[in-house]
Write a protein that binds this DNA or RNA. Structure first.
Lengths: 339, 339
DNA sequence: GTGAAAGCGCTAACAG
DNA sequence: CTGTTAGCGCTTTCAC
């Protein structure tokens, strides 16, 4: 692999001239520029971005910290986050380093391994008290959150307004006459780790029902159809008068619908489902699910843009964004049967 | 940020001693080692991996080249590829740089931007003649394919045996008495780009039917439920005697099932579906789909391991792996009605 | 055992 | 407009 000094020698110019010819950061005579370009072509020159990064202290690489606790499963529709973030990064000339390791207590992983490698970071699966926040602050790595902590002073984030989402769902169901509603939440693991949206959804669910003078059950469910089936069965057994579910977790809907049908319950006549999913996923099942449409793509893009703006030095504004997506009514929900 | 020479000065030792104390590549007196460690702690030292990489010419970063042509959609179940690759990378001490830009004709993207940044690459969405293969060879970047080209001499890959998958599906359907079968393939875009598995599935589909003295239709379908619905409708209109589909594309099944039901066709009584999907996705719909179980996770892991082994200098063997996953019969298929 | 010093390949002053 | 040179922070050879 030829280096800049090879080019310089061959073109008969100074090393810096080659550098400037590439970056355009200072005027170069046409003649010199031609000779440099020529030499590059002849030698098949490829700039070494590692060396450049070391000299400039900028790598043009962002890290996506996306702990994947549940090995074996894909990310489900959440992969839309990844694609949109990758897309946005590319559009702005950044590469994306995907980090799925859980960054555990000895949160050294990142600190040790990739110090200097990234210009900034995007955090996902944010916990209410997230150790990564402190770690990144200490390392002076700029970052944004997709999701949010309990205390968000001084942080930039974009998140779904889960309070709003649950409020909307519950209002809709209660208006339809439903009085016995259950929340099928994300997995136990995520709840225990106090991942923001898992905790928030749960609290908002109960708060909203209470506002209506009602009481609900919530339960955690692993992201697979088997778990969905079993969760539904056990819920129906305990509370036969349930008439609606709010769904938070992907990959379960198949099992849930099957369980209901096995119990002889027709959707939406006997039972209503409202999901907080992306339209894609909501339309994949039969019947298609009424849902608060989770704007993965937009959130990913916004989070990335915020970070990149931050890197450019400009203050990010607004630094905190809460999205309130609309409820789209599909075939899985309707009024409760008067009984 | 303190550097090694800060540590050296503070500990009263030579720069190289600090380096060796960290790497252990040569014996250091206990006393010196203690002073170095102490100084590191006091100053909060973090080694700069960029500088290390420049000096050693190894970054411990792999690139995942995963062109996402279809903006706006997630990767669907294919995200399992990403998670398994990320996981495997982490397990072996590598980071993963995700590159979703299409690497177009002027395939410069990678060459320009990340020369030197990665130790090796994993290619996905491999086309029969894939320009990336030549580009990487030229740049002397070690790589493996998930998928394969037409000509694979000297390449390492792991791929699903789509010939086998289609053969299995068709044999099963034909044995059940189905004589009019259609293939719902991936999007037009992917077919036009001659992505290996899209082309291979199509060819294998027709070849297998021919072997049975039958003829089939195939058609490309975008990855959303609307497209699935429309494709089904138009197929049924043209060929009312169709009694089975083979499905290749995620995110469409909802629409397909809905269309069949709108046509008054009961699954599996009147119509059979066989998919080439991961179990997750196959079990998400209603009824659950009979499928050749696409082993995303295993493929991702194998591809990554092959690459890492290659980086270690050892020859990879076997360098080419074709997986033949079993057919799992679920609720979406059965014998054809005698008519 | 330890130190001094020469790179790794590039950028960006500084000096014409 | 162009050349010279001092870093960026680390690894590794060479010398003691």
């Amino acid at each position: 692999m030829p280096t800049m000094s090879d080019i310089a020698r061959r073109a008969g110019v100074a090393l810096s001239t080659v550098s400037y010819a590439l970056s355009g950061k200072r005027p170069i005579s046409d003649e010199a520029k031609q000779r440099v370009l020529q030499a590059m072509k002849e030698l098949g020159y490829q700039p070494n971005s590692l060396a450049r990064a070391l000299a400039t202290r900028r790598t043009s690489i962002l890290a996506l910290l996306y702990p994947a606790w549940k090995s074996g499963t894909g990310l489900g529709p959440q992969s839309e986050f990844i694609t949109s973030i990758a897309e946005a990064s590319t559009d702005h000339g950044y590469g994306l380093l995907l980090w799925t390791a859980p960054m555990s207590e000895e949160q050294g992983v990142m600190e040790m391994t990739h110090q200097g490698f990234i210009d900034g970071a995007i955090l996902m699966e944010v916990a209410l008290e997230d150790p990564r926040v402190e770690a990144l602050k200490r390392q002076m790595v700029p970052f944004t959150l997709i999701g949010r902590c309990r205390e968000n002073e001084g942080l930039s984030y974009v998140d779904l307004d889960f309070d709003y989402a649950l409020e909307t769902s519950i209002n809709y169901l209660v208006a339809g006459g439903h009085r016995h509603i259950a929340l099928i939440n994300q997995s136990q693991t995520l709840l225990q780790r106090k991942i923001g949206y898992v905790v928030r959804s749960r609290e908002a669910f109960h708060r909203e029902l209470q506002r209506h003078g009602l009481q609900g059950v919530d339960l955690c469910c692993e992201a697979n159809e088997q778990a969905g089936y079993e969760a539904t069965m056990s819920l129906l057994e305990q509370q036969p008068d349930l008439s609606a579910f709010v769904l938070m977790t992907p990959w379960t809907s198949g099992g849930i619908i099957r369980a209901l049908s096995d119990q002889g319950l027709l959707i939406p006549r006997d039972f209503s489902l409202v999901a907080i999913f992306s339209p894609h996923l909501a339309e994949m099942t039969n019947p298609a699910l009424t849902s608060v449409d989770f704007p993965f793509h937009e959130m990913g893009r916004l989070g990335t843009q915020m970070l990149i703006q931050k890197l450019s030095g400009a203050p990010v504004e607004p630094p905190q964004i809460l999205l309130k997506p609309p409820l789209t009514i599909r075939a899985s929900s309707g009024p409760a049967i008067k009984s």
